[in-house]
Design a protein around this nucleic acid. Structure first.
Length: 108
DNA sequence: GGCGTGACTTGAA
DNA sequence: ATTCAAGCCACGC
């Protein structure tokens, strides 16, 4: 059997993020048992841009759109979030806590 | 093949 | 309360 790597797990979790919800790199990393490897999640997300992964639903722990810079358009990430009913002001998600989706809680 | 960078987080001073 | 430092590991030069 294949043993999913960190990257692959990140992709699977990211794919499972529900519509209109967001999560943080650390939450995913922690769910994978590598809370200190949050950076790898970000790097994985960078690669995920070429996949069907909703990377725009993943932000840092304060709800700041740190990765919007990596999207094609500077406002693309924000537009996508607002399109899902998430309000974004100054590159930061409003009521981030309410929209926060913890894989450890939702997936088990 | 080594060094630095990076879409981060946590903990300690 | 804020600021500083360390950790984690893949990728590019």
């Amino acid at each position: 059997m294949e043993e999913p790597n960190f990257f692959d797990k990140v992709y699977e979790v990211a794919k499972r993020i529900p519509y209109g919800r967001v999560t943080s790199y650390g939450a995913i990393a922690k769910y994978l048992g590598a809370a200190r490897s949050a950076r790898m999640v970000g790097w994985a997300m960078n690669k995920s841009l070429a996949k069907d992964i909703p990377a725009h639903r993943v932000v840092n722990r304060v709800g700041l759109l740190t990765g919007k810079q990596h999207f094609d358009g500077t406002n693309l990430m924000q537009q996508l979030l607002e399109n899902e009913g998430i309000k974004v002001v100054d590159n930061q998600i409003v009521d981030f806590k309410k929209h926060f989706w913890d894989p450890a809680l939702e997936l088990g």
